[in-house]
């Protein structure tokens, strides 16, 4: 009964009952080419019995025009069970290639089934890069998915609101994370990128724009020392100005004795005027002032 069914099957599709007759050739040969990786696929040949195996050959323009239209077998895709063959290694020049596949089952083989139309790798579909924009403190970083040698990334970034000033960076070799710029606090930065393949001189569409700003936590950490430093600097500056222009000087002991404690303030002002005319000396008196303060305070 089963034999009857299989016979009918063959009668329908090929009208061939002979055991040694040709197998049906694989159908729907197509090439899937994304990011310079090329895969030949085809529909399986469904026949009863042992598994059907497939073999693939290619023909470049050189073979077609200069080497007697010869075909070259792809050994990795010889007698395979799957209906897919990675032909990336052999589609290695930017010329039109032809590809063909045939089925075999034991001693039976099919006719070659050829790709409809030639394939040139320059038509490969380039996907926008998978990108992650990171704000690490004030550092604007971008992480790009590695696509292998021969792939470059054109990265465009700008400060949000300043779209006219777009910066560009080209990355030829991805080392996990790319540093783009130092960000200013309070501003958001936006990034988009596209893949570029120099071999075929083509670019992908842009990735979706991603924007980031200086992260709150990092900002606090970084600005905390600044908060402390500012009052310190202000105090220090006031001291410098104070020492430079209005030094507090101390009268020599002799004058103090002569003028007496009632007139001390007046005499100090007189001498201050003199010192403002000779600033370089001021610091020396300041030093003396601090030395004297300890000893003369009881008076």
């Amino acid at each position: 009964m089963l034999q009857m069914v299989t016979t009918s099957y063959f009668s329908l599709f090929g009208g061939i009952l002979d055991k040694d007759a040709l197998l049906p050739a694989p159908q729907n040969i197509s090439i899937l080419s994304i990011n310079m990786k090329h895969f030949l696929t085809w529909s399986p040949v469904v026949v009863p019995g042992d598994p059907v195996r497939y073999s693939v050959e290619f023909q470049g323009e050189y073979e077609r025009d200069y080497a007697n239209e010869s075909w070259i077998p792809i050994s990795e895709c010889s007698c395979i069970i799957v209906t897919e063959c990675n032909v990336t290694e052999d589609i290695s020049a930017s010329v039109p290639y032809n590809l063909r596949v045939r089925a075999n089952q034991g001693s039976r083989t099919s006719k070659w089934s050829t790709l409809k139309g030639l394939f040139n790798r320059i038509t490969t579909f380039l996907t926008p890069p998978v990108m992650k924009v990171i704000a690490d403190g004030y550092h604007l970083l971008v992480e790009l998915e590695e696509l292998g040698p021969g792939f470059q990334f054109h990265i465009f970034y700008w400060r949000k609101g300043q779209e006219r000033e777009v910066h560009q960076k080209t990355v030829k070799e991805i080392s996990s994370v790319v540093h783009l710029d130092i960000m200013e606090a309070g501003a958001d930065y936006c990034v988009k990128a596209q893949t570029y393949v120099e071999t075929i001189n083509r670019s992908s569409n842009f990735s979706q724009t991603q924007c980031v700003g200086v992260q709150g936590g990092d900002q606090t950490v970084l600005s905390f020392p600044g908060v402390l430093a500012l009052p310190f600097l202000a105090w220090k500056m006031s001291r410098v100005f104070h020492y430079s222009c209005c030094p507090v000087v101390v009268l020599p002991d002799a004058l103090v004795i002569v003028m007496g404690s009632q007139n001390k303030l007046l005499s100090e002002h007189i001498i201050l005027a003199l010192f403002c005319l000779s600033l370089p000396c001021a610091s020396a008196f300041v030093g003396r002032e601090s030395a004297r303060e300890g000893s003369s305070s009881p008076t």
């Binding site: 470049g60 050189y62 200069y66 052999d90 290695s92 010329v95």
Partner: peptide, 29 residues
């Protein structure tokens, strides 16, 4: 190279022939 050299570089090694094909097609491009 294209007319005279590559076509006489065929070997018994399929892998080698495929690489020669690659170089020949690159020259052709």
């Amino acid at each position: 190279y294209i007319d005279k050299v590559f076509k006489h570089c065929e070997t018994e090694d399929s892998h080698v022939n495929r690489k020669i094909s690659s170089i020949a097609n690159s020259f052709l491009s």
